[in-house]
Design a protein around this nucleic acid. Structure first.
Lengths: 119, 119
DNA sequence: CGACCTCTTTGACATTTGTCAAATAAGTGC
DNA sequence: GCACTTATTTGACAAATGTCAAAGAGGTCG
């Protein structure tokens, strides 16, 4: 039985000790990191993030994003929900549309954990 | 049908343009990055990597690692194989044992892609 | 209200994943 | 060769994942 990854609320707060650091990765931190990495580990979600990062205001709405990745709106909605659940995106309703916006610090934070050697 | 992620050979060589960079993430790069991130996105594999990074020589053998993560040897072997397939570990047989060693540059490279804002 | 637009939820389905036990492979030493 | 140790492969299984169509929810505007 593959240990089911819990929702992020149950996981440790934002993980930051580098992977090989002095206080070795605790099991809870490993789970928290894994959840965040898994949210990132999908071509469609990476594509969505990259697209949003390239927008002037780093945001976009579902109906706008679905054509970009060439998937149905429900599917895109599903991906956006995952990205939001892990804090990689924020959502905001404005009128009829819902705008998703990148949280660059969240992406940065994950990147920092992977800094094993150099600066 | 969830597009099956191909083996890494088919994917782009080591990915390095930051996610939000000028040449927006190509589909091939997205797949390559996703494969690597997915290899990382598991608590057990993170645990294994963290443990290996903390060893003086950054290496260990299967029979040594299985107790660390409290899983059967076949399962650990399976995880190690994935890490090796994505270039995060190298393996080397010495006598009866097989030693796996971390490739810190590979982890670094992934971390760099996630550097969205600062230096 | 009612027609319309945008987005999310639900239900279904095939694929992938993590796990183990059992069998197999690779190496050592008698 | 044979017994033994270590590692991997195979086969099975439950759970998670990515996808869509259909139905529902939330807003807008006539």
């Amino acid at each position: 039985m593959p240990k089911p990854l819990p929702a992020l609320e149950d996981a440790a707060p934002i993980c930051c000790a580098p992977l090989g650091g002095a206080p070795s990765l605790s099991p809870a931190d490993a789970v928290g990191l894994a959840i965040r990495l898994k949210a990132l580990a999908d071509p469609t979600r990476l594509h969505l993030l990259a697209y949003l990062l390239d927008q002037p205001d780093q945001e976009g709405c579902t109906c706008n994003l679905a054509p970009i990745v060439d998937l149905s709106e429900p599917t895109v909605s599903h991906h956006l929900k995952q990205l939001e659940a892990t804090g990689l995106l924020t959502k905001e309703r404005r009128g009829m549309s819902v705008y998703y916006r990148v949280v660059p610090e969240a992406i940065e934070a994950i990147g920092r954990v992977l800094h094993v050697n150099c600066c």
